[in-house]
Design a protein around this nucleic acid. Structure first.
Lengths: 185, 185
DNA sequence: CCTTCCGCTTGACAAAAATCAAGAAAATTT
DNA sequence: AAATTTTCTTGATTTTTGTCAAGCGGAAGG
């Protein structure tokens, strides 16, 4: 998997420009059930998921809440924790053997200093994350549980044979039983 | 209201740096019920709400969905439409007489070209927007309707005597009747 | 000042979803 | 392969929420 290619497509820049970033992303392996990040830590990685699946979740007094399932082709980090070096809100744990291309925070800081266009690329990246979240909120306030399931199934059909359904239920904001019944139809 | 001061606090920069941005933000008045933006347009403004209230909403086949209520102290734009010059998703309409400080897209482009730190400021701004959305999604999947109401009331108590409750209900993802009943307790 | 419109509340009922509990199915470990 | 754990499904019940309809009250406009 070629990070430069991914950068081209994600940030809409020329392949020659994207090549520059390639070298600082190092290959990393994340065994199943191992943690990429834990709540309270400072996130020091900005990674691209080359293969595998990860679960982003938080613990509350009552229950464990899954915020997102990440699969190959997505970038992975705790945005707020990484950018502002704050304590992380999320746990991030591998659901299966996962491989990453990882930029360390130190190398990231050098990009920020040395590459004038870097901040613009980052801005575009974060703006796209924002747009995803905006759409998700719109789905929560405008769609029924069943419509939200249909939406998710259209976007991530491959999750359904690889991710425990209870986690998907949590992402969709419903109980596992409700998801099971919706699927039965 | 001093835009430079707001920039200092929002982006965590020195007041002298912030002064530079001041001049390009022009004062603008938005009468009650007039539109800042309509779905499908290209958003050409990045504004700061000096006073008043606006409603960000979209039409669906079934109903009108209010995504957000903006009040004094917040920035106002359709992030995706402004940054990527795409057709806007949102309608934005003044709920009351509103005053803004507005940066035009043309001046914004000049900032992007001329000020090396501009993209970093923007990145921070968008990252904060992202963090807000992330929290809101977490609330949707982890809290009950009543807890979500309590949360909203804590954050925006002043909305409740100025914004029609049906709009707040929509922001919270519930029917006006349900909000009314939750409030009755 | 009166009328009209809009927003809010309330009640009755229907629909959707959560909860609790039991058992089946699948995956993992031994 | 058997045992154990985890995950998923299903049923019964309760709780929550949505829908429809009626009525109240205040604001806006004639």
């Amino acid at each position: 998997m070629d990070i430069a290619r991914v950068f081209c497509e994600t940030f809409n820049i020329a392949e020659t420009d994207a090549q520059k970033f390639n070298s600082k992303f190092v290959h990393e392996s994340l065994p199943k059930n191992s943690y990429f990040l834990r709540t309270g830590e400072r996130c020091s990685k900005f990674s691209f998921i080359a293969s595998g699946l990860v679960r982003v979740f938080a613990e509350t007094e009552k229950k464990e809440v899954t915020q997102w399932i990440g699969n190959a082709g997505y970038f992975l980090t705790d945005v707020s924790s990484f950018l502002f070096q704050q304590p992380a809100r999320w746990n991030i744990c591998a659901l299966s053997e996962t491989t990453l291309w990882t930029l360390s925070y130190d190398d990231y800081i050098h990009f920020e200093k040395d590459l004038p266009e870097w901040n613009m690329l980052e801005k575009r990246f974060v703006a796209k994350c924002f747009a995803m979240m905006e759409s998700r909120i719109f789905d929560f306030i405008s769609l029924s549980a069943e419509e939200r399931y249909a939406q998710y199934f259209k976007l991530f059909p491959h999750h359904f044979n690889q991710v425990p359904l209870q986690y998907i239920a949590s992402v969709l904001g419903m109980s596992p039983e409700t998801l099971s019944r919706i699927r039965a139809r």
